[in-house]
Amino acid sequence: MAHSHDISKHVRTYIAIFVALLVGTVVTVGLYYVHFNSVAVTIAVALVIASLKSYLVAGFFMHLNSEKKTIYAIMAVTVFFFFALMGLFIWSFLDIPTPKGL
């Protein structure tokens, strides 16, 4: 087991991450009321904040920042196939011919 002293340091980190996640949520909702000119910018901003929040959860609460190689190997394969899934879909969408005049 890890030493109590090490864990108590982690606890302070967990609380800081908790506050950061709440702030991230408030910022996400706050930006909803700021009307960006571009839909793409709106989506990008929301997804960037969500990605940062998910990094905080995965990296600190799930301890992915300091895991064993086996876990990284599992996640590397997962990330590859996740983006392959998204990429295939985007590829198929881009493949749709645009009617002339549109």
Partner: peptide, 18 residues
């Protein structure tokens, strides 16, 4: 449980805000 939270972190903006 963290994974369940993580999924919601994406679901919330995608469904409620965008």
């Amino acid at each position: 449980w963290h994974f369940v939270d993580l999924v919601w972190i994406f679901l919330f903006p995608v469904l409620y805000l965008l």
